[in-house]
Amino acid sequence: MASDAPSSPDEARRALVEALVATGEQDRAAFLRVYRMTAAKLFGVCLRICGDRTAAEDVLQDVYALVWKRASGFEPGRASPITWLATIARNRAIDWRRANPHRATTDVEDVADLPEPSPSACDTLLFDETDRRLHLCLDALQDTQREMIRAAFFGGLTYAELAERRAVPLGTMKSWIRRGLLRLRECLDDDA
């Protein structure tokens, strides 16, 4: 790891929290620090959900305009900063998908099912290592359950939309996912 990079996850997260809090006080230099620390991750999120590079760029710009406006509402004690930011990116990208169904060229299930890459240095710095249990527990689910849960997360799809895409009755879809969520909860509880 480069010597000028934050030396530990704690330090990286603290630097991001500080920059985000200062952004909430309308500090533009801090805002640019937030951008530089997180843009690649958030662009990855936008790209994955939008499936269209031009759209992902527009959405990313919207996301940071929102970050600038909403940073004063970020509560360091309650949320991880990268999760707070990534959630804004996810929500905006899902809004875009809903508004532009014809431009969302990739199918949401393809989007959700991209092969898992190995986590990058930024991830290991900004995400909490101890909270990776979800991945292990998801791996323990049936393929369909796992796919549907990921499609719901990355595509912002409801039960009704998932049922339509999979051409199964609504009740069947609810039952698949609820059983998957139940197993997920058991697995997460076991591990806690």
Binding site: L32, A39, A40, K41, F43, Y64, D131, L134, F153
Partner: peptide, 26 residues
């Protein structure tokens, strides 16, 4: 828990002009 799914999304460096656009908009 679900937010940890973000960790698996690969980072993609956005084009440099976006930073200027975003800074200019702010």
């Amino acid at each position: 828990h679900f937010a940890t799914l973000f960790a698996e999304v690969p980072e993609v460096v956005p084009p440099a002009y976006l930073e200027h656009r975003i800074a200019a908009a702010v």
